[in-house]
Design a protein around this nucleic acid. Structure first.
Lengths: 192, 192
DNA sequence: TAAAAAAGAATGAACATTCATTTTTTAACA
DNA sequence: TGTTAAAAAATGAATGTTCATTCTTTTTTA
């Protein structure tokens, strides 16, 4: 009498292949047959792990998003000053985008296209809670401007995606010096 | 003996349909058959105006990009102060993104995915020349920080795309007040 | 050895592009 | 001005391919 024992390696291979193929071509140009081939698996096997293509891509999105925010907030605690907390989180996000380029590109693609369905997208947004709370605290303490959180996000965190995209396209090389410049821009744009 | 006289109306309809369908679904989910139907034209007719689908989308991209930068730089002249010039350009860009939502969404989609081929992408970048020259001047005059142009772009202009995307997804409503906040963020992040 | 897991081949739908005709436009001339 | 025929423009249907998903069979596991 067998027990349900699907291979975690196969699932990981599928997730990795999905990320790589979607990065290169986008959702609709990442066929299930290629994903299967890259994961060394039969196309039919994908359907043992995921309901269909949309489900596959939703789940990959949520897992990558989790791994991103886990990394971003790992060393942050809410007894830090707003300034220190922001610097810490910002730099860890930059770090993630530089070190985990494939994953970061995948998230950027998901966030900028209608690839992910709305329930999964909303689920993904929840992971940013610690940052939103930090901003609320900063506004209450009078440390950062009382701007909408969307403006704060747009001018501090999101620009990192643009820089990463340019770097990944080979348009320019992002150095430690650029990261420092970018951090200064980010902080200047919101500090009181 | 007839003369070449293809209908400009049909071509415009095709361009408009391409923008609308790509916005909703992305390049690969905007089939030629649907583009044709939306433009009230036979699928075969598309091939009288464009070589193939890639050519269609490249050309639409370059035309929209032109219309965008024409609007952005229309009232700018290089005898303005750097501060005034930046404010003018920034606000006209915001204006375009609010008024021409479909076109702005289309550009954002093109700039964030591998949808456009590289030659056309490089062609599109050239249209930003006046802004880059303004920044160079600002750095020379000591008015703005000596940051890389990519950083300057990422923290001043590009965030508008994020705000527009959130607005178009119905996540929040971008008001005149937000625009003013966003402009302040943008300028704070680069001014000396 | 029985049930789960995996596979490869099969299915049917959707797609980009081309083909064979039809319709419209043009301009030379009656 | 009105007629006509040649060329351009436009079409709907056909073609061949690619894809997501399912079906049937084989392999692995406990």
């Amino acid at each position: 009498m067998a027990k349900l024992q699907k291979s975690i390696d196969k699932r990981n291979a599928l997730v990795g292949a999905t990320i790589e193929l979607v990065n290169n071509n986008g959702f609709h140009a990442a066929p299930m047959s290629k994903i299967a081939k890259m994961a060394n698996v039969s196309p039919a096997t994908i359907y043992l792990y995921f309901e269909n293509k949309q489900d596959l891509v939703n789940k990959v999105y949520l897992e990558v998003k989790s791994s991103f925010t886990d990394y971003a907030f790992k060393t942050y605690t809410d007894d830090m000053s707003v300034k220190d907390g922001f610097e810490l989180i910002w730099k860890r996000i930059a770090d993630f985008k530089l070190k985990e380029r494939e994953e970061a590109m995948f998230l950027a693609q998901c966030d900028n296209t209608p690839m992910i369905d709305e329930p999964s997208r909303n689920e993904g947004i929840k992971h940013l809670q610690p940052l939103l709370e930090l901003w609320e605290r900063g506004k209450k303490e009078g440390v950062i401007k009382k701007f909408s959180n969307y403006i704060l996000y747009a001018y501090t965190i999101n620009p990192l995606s643009f820089l990463m995209l340019m770097q990944n396209r080979g348009v320019f090389q992002l150095t430690e010096n650029h990261i420092q410049e970018a951090y200064k821009s980010a902080w200047n744009s919101i500090k009181v």
